[in-house]
Design a protein around this nucleic acid. Structure first.
Lengths: 218, 218
DNA sequence: CGTCTCTTTGAGTTAATTCAATGCTCGTGG
DNA sequence: CCACGAGCATTGAATTAACTCAAAGAGACG
């Protein structure tokens, strides 16, 4: 289970990019780019996690997506970035100059297909996020969030899942307050559905119960 | 102002599609396709309005997007549609067989660029929708929704804007209940920011005030 | 003119928030 | 080595924005 010891490999369609990538380190909380910046590069997370945020004038914040090892971000073919990207914890990312990417896109149908498919995956994710924010309760949102983490880690009952982000990050992703996130986490612990050995990991005790809550089939 | 008398024209990049389009009528409430159906076509609304919905097992509903005259939907390059599409009112849509569209995409860079750009517009819209559902109050959501309608209609103070959808549709788009939508509409009327000559139109009285509420700059 | 659907408004309830206090962990400097 | 402070996290108490339930109004249509 899990990926091997090395860094995540590029999808075979995109190996051509390898030559033009630049590796950069970011420390916890550091900004990678800001909403509105010229979108000169596309990015991929090698290790660590990144959050994509929308900041409102009065300080409210909505996290649009968390990006994990091996995932791309900043793909959207637009003038300026639509969100701010920040390192959740210490992270290494690779950046590829957009003109190069577009050149490869023009040349190779396989690259285009892959880019389209990455975009559409993002879109699918955003749809379920939208449903979550619009129509799910706090408990359901948190359960859905944890389910996604569990699924991505390919974990089952008894397994430990890494939780790189803070409670505030989770709250800003779920459209809740930090207190509500804490309370619902405590409720899940009390129900023996999860346990939390430390602040940055959880252990799944009852995957089925978690999925049942997340999927709203009451 | 507004579009002329004829039907909205295809973007010049995509005129090639004209030859392979099939025009279809749908009546108020009718389903165009259902989430999960094989995504064999892409669509464009000629007149009327369409809603893209996610239905939850227990009957809750989230509207992901409203599609208006001239706009495309069902573009995402995936196996099955990610949402259900229904006619908001009587509507005419054109459908284009996806294989044809993909063929043109392979042949013409201009078509590809246009498709990419349509997708990324949708993504931008979804980002602001996400912020709205996650972090804005009922009043702010409604104001933002109306602002978008006003902007799209290129309307200003005193102009009437068409409101094809029901209050319930608006509620399901904004992640609220129908009662809350009604109450906030009444509040905007009382504040002389809008008026509502009938159920399917509103008159903008104070664009600035509306935008001020929508943009959360308190 | 009665029926059906949609909308509006009121009254009471509740899920989630705000405000406040306390606890936990970790790193730094005395 | 321990004490202290900083930064998160957790829990409790009080508040509120939005919800539910209920009743009445307003069109549309046969």
């Amino acid at each position: 289970m899990g990926h091997g010891i090395g860094l995540p490999a590029l999808p075979s369609d995109l190996v051509a990019l390898q030559a033009v990538g630049t590796r950069v380190r970011f420390t916890r909380g550091e900004t990678i780019f800001t909403e509105g910046d010229a979108a000169t590069k596309i990015y991929r997370v090698l290790c660590g996690a990144v959050r994509l945020c929308k900041h409102m004038p009065d300080g409210r914040r909505q996290i649009v997506e968390f990006i994990h090892d091996g995932d791309f971000f900043g793909l959207m073919p637009v003038t300026g970035y639509a969100f701010t990207a920040e390192a959740v914890n210490d992270a290494v990312v690779v950046s590829y100059p957009r003109p190069q990417v577009e050149k490869y896109g023009e040349q190779f149908a396989s690259v285009r297909r892959r880019l389209f498919s990455l975009l559409s995956d993002q879109m699918l994710g955003m749809h379920s996020h939208l449903v979550m924010l619009g129509r799910q309760t706090a408990k359901e949102r948190l359960a859905a969030f944890l389910c996604k983490l569990v699924e991505r880690a390919d974990a089952g009952n008894g397994d430990t899942v890494d939780l790189p982000m803070t409670r505030q990050d989770i709250a800003d992703y779920l459209g809740l307050t930090i207190e509500t996130v804490c309370r619902e986490l405590s409720a899940l612990k009390k129900a023996h559905i999860i346990s939390a050995p430390d602040l940055n990991s959880i252990v799944i005790r009852n995957t089925d119960a978690l999925e049942r809550i997340a999927s709203c089939e009451d």
